[in-house]
């Protein structure tokens, strides 16, 4: 469905030099599939997202969505692409317009894509959507500032999903949330995927969350995909040293494992 086909991108780094940000990235997301993209800060995660959404132009390669070349699409195709591919941001405090009510926020996609032309029709769809993400009708007239971080992320998901996209790109959607709230949002994304057959591209630095949500995983190291395979392959039998190093560094909430690993490392040096 979404095909990221050999894209590369570099940025000027002064003195005529260029830094390679993305190097020959190949990544596909099929209908209903959940793909995880793992990378540390500076690995090029956000550049991939921007290219995939057509917000940034790769130097070479192409991004296509169901046959549409995202960067060279006609107005009509672009509108279809915008309806089918949505994004959930990391920071639910900055990703919602503070001057719009929840009804306006969630209903905007319906209005823009003319999916519901009457205000009453939109309201009904918005209420239905809010129920799906676990919020009530009383949320309609309220503004984002009166909600907690977890609730805002639910609103953001409702806003993205109400127009029934085929692909949801998630950019670290739980890393800004409190630990006890993260599971709610992770479960919600899982439900959405199961109920709506949504494809998910889940971009995160947190390997544990990716393992939990995604059946296919790609590991990004400094602009290059170094490992790409099923969840079981990548997590249980990693091949690339970088993947191994990452997995060994992830903290595991079990004191015996944590201490054993530390002792091993200290003996090794």
């Amino acid at each position: 469905m979404l095909q990221i086909d050999h894209i590369s991108k570099s940025f000027p780094a002064g003195r005529g030099q260029r830094t390679m940000v993305l190097d020959d990235i190949v990544l596909n997301v099929d209908e209903g599939q959940s793909v995880g993209l793992v990378g540390e800060s500076g690995s090029g995660k956000s550049t991939i997202i921007r290219c995939a959404l057509g917000l940034a132009q790769p130097d070479s390669g192409r991004v296509s969505y169901s046959g549409i070349d995202v960067h060279r699409a006609s107005r009509f195709d672009t509108l279809r692409f915008r309806r089918d591919v949505q994004l959930v941001f990391q920071d639910p405090y900055a990703s919602l317009n503070p001057r719009m009510t929840v009804e306006e926020l969630v209903g905007e996609g319906l209005l823009v894509h003319k999916l519901e032309t009457t205000a009453a029709g939109r309201r009904a769809r918005v209420v239905e959507m809010l129920r799906m993400v676990g919020l009530g009708e009383e949320a309609l007239a309220r503004y984002p500032r009166s909600f907690s971080g977890g609730q805002r992320q639910r609103i953001a998901i409702a806003r993205a999903v109400v127009i029934r996209p085929k692909l949801l790109i998630c950019d670290e959607p739980v890393s800004a949330l409190d630990v006890s709230v993260q599971a709610q949002v992770i479960n919600l994304l899982q439900d959405m995927q199961a109920q709506l057959g949504l494809g998910i591209l889940f971009v995160a630095h947190d390997l544990a969350v990716v393992r939990h949500l995604c059946t296919t995983v790609a590991v990004l190291e400094r602009g290059r995909i170094v490992e790409h395979g099923s969840r079981e392959q990548v997590f249980d039998a990693p091949q690339h040293p970088y993947t191994k190093a990452l997995l060994e560094a992830v903290p595991i909430p079990d004191p015996a494992i944590g201490r054993a690993r530390r002792t091993e490392r200290q003996l090794a040096t």
Binding site: D178, S180, A183, Q184, H212, P253
Partner: peptide
């Protein structure tokens, strides 16, 4: 709840047990 709500990188579970609400 905290321990069960956090996914782990070394095991796969079907569903996380979440704590409702927010702190």
């Amino acid at each position: 709840g905290l321990l069960e709500a956090v996914p782990r990188a070394d095991v796969t579970v079907d569903r996380l047990r979440s704590i409702p609400g927010a702190p």
